[in-house]
Amino acid sequence: MESSTEDLQKHVRTYLMVGATLFVFTIVTVLVRTVPFFDFGVPGVDAPDIAFGLVIATFKSSLVMLIFMHLNHERGLIYKVLVFTVAFAISLMGLTLFAQGNPIRPHADVIEHLHVSDVTAADVESKAPGAKAEPAKH
C-alpha cells in the first residue's frame, strides 16, 4: 500500500470515523434490545429482532474487514482464499441446519401410536428408573 505521510494522515481520519460509526451502531443494537420503544414485533426477542441484530453485526464486521483490515484494496489471491473459506463455512452451517430440518419422520400411524410429538420432560423423567425410588437394572 502507498505510504506517503499525507495519505496516511487521511487514513487516520478514516479510521477514527469508522471507529465512531462502530460505536454508534453498537448503541443502536443495544437500544433495540433493551428499550421497548425501539423493539420490533413481539416484546422480547423474535425473528425481526434477530435479523436486525445480525444485519447490523454484518455491517459492522464488513467495516472492520474493509477499512481496518484493508480488504478494500487487497491482492486478488487473498480474496480467492477468503471467498472459498466463507463458502465452506456457510456450507457447514447451512447443510447441517438443512440436515437437522429434514429428518426422517415416523409414519403418521406410528406417531399416533407412540405420541412421539408429545413427549415432555416429565415423560422422559418418568421413564427414568432412577427417578422412582427403586432403580431398575437393565
Binding site: V30, G53, A57, M65, F68, M69
Partner: peptide, 16 residues
C-alpha cells in the same frame, strides 16, 4: 481485528 470481528458477532448472539 479478526478477534474484534468475532466479538462483533458474539455480542448480539450471546447477550442480546
Amino acid at each position: 481485528h479478526f478477534v474484534d470481528l468475532v466479538w462483533i458477532f458474539l455480542f448480539p448472539i450471546m447477550y442480546l
